[in-house]
């Protein structure tokens, strides 16, 4: 039986092995992904992003309680950073979610960014697709602790949650572009702390000044104290309300189309790049190229044009 069929039959090991192959860029993983693709497109994908230590994992953990009580199965992709120096990573998001490790309706997968910028790992889309094919009703994608510009999550999720906490600097921080623009729902977590009201007030002002959305959705702000589970129920119902608005307009369809485009472009880019890198390595490798570039015998722009022209002529 093929790996994909085993996954569709509910084989957990097969699914996690495929995720490993995807992450390690093993070429055969693509065969399984091709076979699984027709079975995707059913899950509702929720993204959660925010600065390090803002409580994303804890919020996810508590939301899972509610989803499970409602009988929904859940997949979680949690991304943590890879060390740029050693290539290693400590993936610790599971610590907050291990209560759910023995629940068969919950599948948690930790990913390292492996050098990808944007707050996600390059494998995220594909691994979400595997969970979708596994039949998960809700898939939650938790980004690395982001700063201001890690907005890749919008291409992955139907509903994006941005988590903020008190004490993050003055109100000008909130009017910069970036993660504030991508939030469909906002959370002020650790709301028992001093300054929570101010964060909420500043955020509300920014959102009121912001551009109007085509579908009329006005991003709500939820105050939570996730560690105690406070405000999580309201947050989950905020997700449902957003989902409803997306479904009533054509926005959900549009989001699936945007996601399909992002995935396709990513695959195309990876495939094209690996073809050119193979060509470079076959044609004498990097040394002569780097010599030419550093000694200024050629420039990167002309060289790229030349290699592309040669490759196209060969086929």
């Amino acid at each position: 039986m093929s790996l994909a069929k085993r996954i569709l039959d509910g084989d957990i090991r097969a699914a996690s092995r495929l995720m490993r192959d995807i992450d390690d860029r093993i070429p055969t993983a693509m065969d399984a992904l091709k076979e699984l693709y027709p079975n995707t497109g059913k899950a509702y994908i929720v993204g959660i992003t925010g600065p390090p230590g803002s409580g994303k994992s804890t919020i996810v953990d508590k939301m899972v309680d509610i989803f499970r009580k409602e009988g929904k199965s859940v997949g979680i992709v949690a991304v943590d950073p890879t060390s740029p120096f050693t290539g290693g990573a400590i993936l610790g998001d599971r610590i907050r979610m291990q209560r759910h490790a023995t629940d068969e309706g919950v599948f948690i997968r930790s990913l390292a960014t492996r050098g990808n910028l944007g707050g996600l790992s390059r494998s995220t889309q594909d691994i979400v697709n595997v969970m979708d094919a596994m039949g998960k009703d809700i898939i939650i994608v938790e980004t690395v602790g982001v700063g201001q510009d890690e907005v890749e999550i919008v291409n992955t999720a139907h509903t994006s949650i941005v988590v903020l906490v008190p004490g993050m600097g003055d109100d000008i921080q909130a009017i910069k572009a970036g993660i504030i623009e991508i939030g469909d729902l906002f959370v002020v977590n650790k709301c028992q702390r001093d300054g929570a009201e101010k964060v909420e007030r500043d955020l509300r002002m920014v959102l009121e000044m912001g551009r109007k959305r085509e579908d009329g959705w006005e991003p709500p702000i939820f105050k939570t104290e996730a560690i105690l589970g406070k405000g999580i129920f309201e947050l989950v119902y905020g997700i449902y309300r957003h989902k409803q608005v997306l479904e009533q307009g054509q926005t959900l369809e549009r989001k699936w189309r945007e996601r399909a485009k992002a995935t396709f472009l990513e695959v195309l880019e990876t495939e094209v790049m690996s073809r050119f890198i193979q060509k470079i390595e076959k044609d004498g490798g990097w040394e002569s190229i780097l010599d030419d570039l550093t000694k200024r015998r050629t420039d990167p722009y002309s060289l790229a044009e030349k290699i592309i022209a040669e490759e196209l002529k060969d086929h």
Partner: peptide, 9 residues
């Protein structure tokens, strides 16, 4: 991690 491995804790 410093040896280049991915460690889930």
């Amino acid at each position: 991690r410093d040896a280049g491995m991915e460690v889930i804790y």
